[in-house]
């Protein structure tokens, strides 16, 4: 679990790039450990290969951004992590994704447990058409996390507070979740996700439906949340990746082209495709 990454050359096909990338990550290992590892993950939708042999480490209490042009497989990869792709019957996943020591695709794994430990925030805010309170209380209720009403109240308030929403909705927790503004709805969804104390939060372009001010609030929140949680975020905005993430992985046509510390990727991309993308030539 706590084994620091050293020189795992299996991680990438091209060893020369790898050396530098690893070096950059390695500089950070004295404070962080690896939360999740993906090894040689390939995904097929029926006959179409959506992801080719992707290997990636996700560092605990850091934000990892997945970037790349649309259709590059970044969302597919994200949805493999908590097995949301199980919902698509034609989807086949090969390779290995580990949470700690446990392969999430092991037959003994119960997806409900997995998804409790790896939460998710979706592209479009999707609050249930229920009250704010019920939205946040939903997860703790189904998982039986609160013994009584007081405990549940506490969880709801704590989650809303961590999501930076409590002040705005104080006194109207029984208002419909769908009556909030777009940015508030998305923070409600984040509160709903953290109410069950996940270890990892997956975010699928969480700001793509929001205006710049709401986006800024979510980004602040992400920065705050990484103290407690490990975050993987898919974004199509490079500025956002640069602002919020510690590590960045660049996907192109189903392949993981380049990965490393965000600073390094944006200042000194080593792959020509990455450079083309971040300078706006591939979009």
């Amino acid at each position: 679990m706590d084994a620091p990454i050293s020189t795992d050359t299996n991680l990438d096909a091209s060893p020369t790039q790898e050396a530098t990338t690893e070096m950059n990550i390695a500089t950070d290992t004295h404070t962080s450990s690896i939360k999740m590892t993906a090894k040689n993950v390939s995904v097929f939708y029926a006959d179409m290969q959506a992801l080719k042999d992707v290997s990636l480490d996700i560092i605990e209490n850091r934000v990892t951004a997945l970037i790349g042009p649309s259709g590059c497989g970044k969302t597919t990869f994200l949805r493999c992590i908590n097995r949301m792709n199980d919902l698509i019957p034609s989807c086949k996943v090969s390779g290995e994704i580990k949470l700690g020591d446990h392969d999430v695709y092991d037959p003994s794994v119960d997806v409900e447990v997995l998804r409790r430990r790896i939460g998710m925030v979706f592209q479009k805010p999707n609050p249930f058409p229920k009250s704010i309170y019920e939205n946040v209380a939903y997860g703790p209720r189904i998982h039986g996390l609160a013994e009584n009403k007081e405990a549940l109240d506490a969880i709801v308030r704590k989650s809303l507070k961590r999501a930076g929403l409590l002040d705005e909705v104080e006194g109207r927790l029984d208002a419909l979740g769908t009556s909030l503004s777009g940015g508030q709805q998305q923070r409600l969804c984040i509160a709903r996700a953290i109410a069950i104390e996940p270890e990892v939060i997956l975010m699928d372009e969480p700001c793509s439906a929001l205006d710049p001010i709401a986006t800024a609030k979510i980004e602040e929140l992400i920065d705050d949340l990484k103290k407690r949680y490990t975050i993987v975020i898919v974004t199509h905005s490079m500025q956002q990746a640069a602002r919020v993430s510690d590590y960045t992985a660049y996907f192109h046509l189903g392949e993981l082209v380049e990965k490393g510390e965000t600073n390094r990727i944006f200042t000194a991309p080593q792959h020509s495709k990455t450079e083309a993308y971040i300078t706006g030539r591939i979009g």
């Binding site: 998710m120 609050p127 249930f128 939903y138 189904i142």
Partner: peptide, 27 residues
């Protein structure tokens, strides 16, 4: 009922029947 609502519930670790009973049927 939008797929997004079902996914929100399933993403929180709800089983299928919990999702149906608590999210899909009320909607």
């Amino acid at each position: 009922v939008p797929q997004a609502l079902k996914e929100a519930s399933i993403g929180l670790g709800a089983t299928r029947s919990e999702t149906i009973r608590r999210v899909v049927l009320p909607a």
